[in-house]
Design a protein around this nucleic acid. Structure first.
Lengths: 176, 176
DNA sequence: TTTGACATGTAACCCGTTACATGATTTT
DNA sequence: AAAATCATGTAACGGGTTACATGTCAAA
């Protein structure tokens, strides 16, 4: 459960409102940790109750922008959390279950789904590569940038792998 | 949500009890779809209510082995589900959030967690490679085996990537 | 002044997790 | 007969998702 700490990180980078955070989560951070705006609003309330962040604007001002910033206690909490061990979660992918099912009930209809996934992963791969080019190529790198680049490259390699996988399976099914 | 269909697939391969399924989920299938025994028992009840599977043994026989097998309606449901499009989920990894946090609050203590992850991914990689060797190398492959092998290879490539990633980050932190 | 975009929320549901409880079977 | 193991559950909780509701502000 790292949403609260992802939010603290994002707010330390730049104090923001809930919706701004939601937008940012659909990009950069969100490539490895997704969150909907409902989740974010819920969590921001908790962060404030915990005394980790502070929001501008009066109570009960529904519809009016509310900007959050991190308090010292929040930064301390983030430091503490950052040093915790993080669990190795296995991959979890419906497509693999579908392919295994296909081995039992026959592959009719499997190819369509695979083609969609192939297109989707190609798109994601192109997006990651574009970001890589824009943000990292031909620039002098700071310490922090090296790490961000490596994170992105994990994403790139994963998508590359997946594209090749879909292509292979389609070929095996005689559909490409 | 593919647990029910993962169970149907597994039960079609071989009629089993809940615990047997749980054991099997901690291996092969579970490499891409994990489930605890509590989840499995809960789901098996639903599958039976839906008329997709049938269990041996009388009602209310707590503690006595209960074997499930798939009914025709269950096989039909699996066929239907298998042909649905499956969503592309982005990666989701706490470690990436931690590294990003480290860029903001400093990397103190990050290396320990990374070393643990490195060890864990190396272990998983070794396991996958052992399975690959045992199940696929030097054997004549059926249609279904090719697909199972490719699924495993996605896992292998992912773990390989991750090991390299941990090593790189540790190096960058001056810890390896 | 109405429309659309921006912004914040509420409520319900389901899956996955954790902790615990209980019955049956085999082994010592 | 006691202990260990196999096997099936129950209950509570929390995060993630979906659908919906409400308020503000700027532009047409």
């Amino acid at each position: 459960m790292s949403l609260p700490h992802a939010l603290l990180t994002s707010l330390l980078e730049k104090p923001s409102s809930g919706l701004e955070l939601a937008h940012r989560f659909s990009k950069s951070i969100g490539y490895f940790w997704q969150a909907s705006h409902q989740q974010i609003y819920r969590e921001l309330v908790r962060l404030e109750e915990a005394g980790w962040v502070q929001s501008s604007a009066d109570e009960g001002a529904r519809g009016r922008k509310r900007t959050y910033e991190v308090l010292p206690a929040g930064k301390a909490e983030l430091k503490r959390w950052m040093a915790l061990p993080s669990e190795h979660k296995n991959l979890r992918d419906e497509m693999m279950v579908r392919i295994r099912a296909a081995a039992v009930v026959g592959p009719d209809g499997l190819a369509d789904g695979l083609k969609q996934r192939l297109a989707s992963h190609r798109e994601q791969l192109a997006l990651y590569r574009a970001i890589h080019k824009k943000d990292f190529e031909g620039k002098k790198e700071t310490r922090a940038m090296v790490l961000q680049r490596r994170i992105l490259e994990v994403g790139i390699e994963y998508e590359r792998q997946y594209v090749a996988f879909c292509e292979d399976v389609l070929k095996e099914l005689g559909e490409a």
